[in-house]
Amino acid sequence: MRLSYPTNVKIVKVPCTGRVDIILILKAFENGADGVYLVGCLEGDCHYLVGNIRARKRVEYVKHILDECGIGGDRVAMYTMSSAEGQRFAEVAREMTEKIRNLGPNPAKKAAARNA
C-alpha cells in the first residue's frame, strides 16, 4: 500500500495491547510524549480473548490520572482495527497527530523547558 503517516508517531510494538500497563503510558508522558494512543485488534478478535478490552479499560483509567495531575486525559486514546486496515492506521495516525497538535505540548515538558 505504501501509505504515509506523520513521522512524529513513534511505534512501540507489543505482542498484545493487553501488555500495556498503566505505568508504561504514564512513563511515556513523564519522558515528554505529547500524546499516546494504543492500537489494538478489533473487539472480539483478540488472540488472548480480552487483551484489547483490558487495554481500553486501562486507557480510561489513565485518562482519569492525567486529568488529575493536569496533563489532560484527552492526550491518550485507544483505537481498534484489523491488521488488514492499513488505510485506517494511517488515518488514525493523522487524526491523533492533529488532535495533539491542537492540544499543544505536554504541560510538564513545557514547564521543564521554561525552567531550564
Partner: peptide, 21 residues
C-alpha cells in the same frame, strides 16, 4: 509497588508542570 510507581509518576508530572519538581 505498582500503585507506588503510578502515584510517583503522577506527582512528578504535576510538580514538573507547576515548575516545582
Amino acid at each position: 509497588s505498582k500503585e507506588v510507581a503510578v502515584l510517583a509518576s503522577e506527582i512528578r508530572m504535576y510538580r514538573q508542570k507547576e515548575g516545582k519538581p
